[in-house]
């Protein structure tokens, strides 16, 4: 069973996305199978930080709404074996994903990955509740 790590903060802009990307890459370079979920729609999103922004076809909402299979939405990192990104929903509707869907998604991913690292939006809106819903053991 994979471990879920939620990266969160109170204030915005303190380094969550940077931390998610580096921890994900660090775990993958140790040979772990890692998927990072972008639960935020921000300026410098996880896909940009990872240099994967041109590879997005499907996103988180496509997965939770059943538009595609989970596997189809996972983008493989260019450098590291075993590192994947599930990109942020491009919709501004923050209620497009609910906590139950997030929990189910994490349960599914935990079967296949050693670590699920979730990049949270700052503060306590829906995105935060979604992100912590998947957390079995909360690191952050």
């Amino acid at each position: 069973m994979g471990e879920v790590i939620v990266v969160t903060s109170g204030k915005g802009g303190v380094g969550k996305t940077t931390t998610t990307a580096n921890i994900g890459a660090g775990l993958a370079s140790m040979g772990k199978r890692v998927v990072m979920i972008d639960a935020d729609i921000g300026l410098r999103n996880l896909d940009v930080v990872l240099g994967l922004e041109n590879r997005i076809v499907y996103d988180l909402v496509d997965v939770t709404s059943g538009q595609c299979r989970t596997r189809q939405a996972l983008i493989k990192d260019k450098r590291l074996e075993g590192l994947y990104l599930l990109p942020a929903a491009q919709t501004k509707d923050k209620t497009a994903v609910n906590p139950e869907q997030m929990r189910d998604l994490c349960n599914e991913l935990q079967q296949e990955f050693d670590f699920i690292v979730i990049d949270c939006p700052a503060g306590i809106e829906q995105g935060f509740r979604n992100a912590i819903a998947g957390a079995e053991k909360l690191l952050w």
Binding site: N22, S29, V49, G51
Partner: peptide
């Protein structure tokens, strides 16, 4: 970050 690289 600007280059899509990672400090780690």
């Amino acid at each position: 970050t600007n280059r899509g690289e990672l400090v780690i």
